[in-house]
Design a protein around this nucleic acid. Structure first.
Lengths: 146, 146
DNA sequence: TTGAAAACCTACTAAACCAGTAGTATTATA
DNA sequence: TATAATACTACTGGTTTAGTAGGTTTTCAA
């Protein structure tokens, strides 16, 4: 039940771009160095985001990336959904329907997973890049520890 | 970001035991057949739960397992915590402290993960086996769909 | 007292996934 | 036209997942 490096790196890259968005296009090399992430690996993650309007690209000399939307209009849920493929905690809950299991009609545990999926979904789509920069989401304040 | 079969099978086994708890000790063979799960694989999962007081065991002829506590006293969170190892969505959040990353002191994304960890934790520890049998947790009712 | 049925224990394995590395092609600008 | 950047594709070593397989020990009942 872990978020992979793909999702975490994508998020760190976008937060980095949000923090430096006054500087125009930023080269991947710069981001990779600032974040301590393999540039080559980031190169593989970027296209996933690039299929949407989250990123703007300039190729060639002095090219790079910048955010295609305001940080307040980009949610963590959207980014993770793209990079992780799916945010649902079990395979039998997919977009728009129940799949993959002939027991689902009468599965007593299915409501657990739907409930879990909902709290995860609701939370992640409530946090924007702007919240992260401001450290200001309502969920961030508490001193909760496992 | 998926719950593995270990956690899901453990939960199904315990729900099965909860539903049949008037019948005393139940053999793993019976549970495996009812649930359509490999008995041999379940054999590997059981010891994890058996280290706690969640299960009572009888070995030998006509032996088996039964719940060691009331279904209302066993939470989904507890079961998944045992079988999945950790419920935290990132490695840098562990029990009681932050580990594994020298960037954590100034990591802007850490509050996201702490917030996510909290909503997952709060939810999973709010659902008991009894809730599952009754289909009666507050989160179960909604018609939420991705 | 012995056979059967159960839990218990350990080792092995095929397939998938993760976290990259490597190399080349394409594009844009000074 | 050299250079610096993105874009694309293939490969890889390590780990995890989801089991199988086989043997040992315990208990009860006939």
């Amino acid at each position: 039940m872990k978020i992979s490096t793909k999702g975490r790196y994508a998020l760190r890259m976008l937060v980095d771009l949000a923090e430096h968005r006054s500087e125009g296009y930023t080269a991947l090399k710069t981001i990779a160095e600032r974040q301590g992430i393999s540039k080559k690996y980031l190169e593989q993650i970027v296209p996933i985001l690039n299929r949407t309007d989250i990123l703007l690209t300039n190729r060639g000399f002095q090219g790079g990336y910048q955010l295609g939307r305001e940080p307040s209009e980009i949610t963590v849920g959207e980014v993770l959904r793209l990079t992780e493929g799916s945010l649902s905690p079990v395979a039998c809950i997919g977009p728009n329907e129940i799949v993959n299991c002939d027991r689902s009609v009468d599965c007593p545990t299915l409501p657990i997973w739907k409930g879990l999926d909902k709290v995860i979904h609701d939370y992640l789509y409530s946090v924007t890049l702007q919240d992260i920069i401001d450290q200001s989401n309502e969920h961030f304040a508490d001193d909760y520890m496992i």
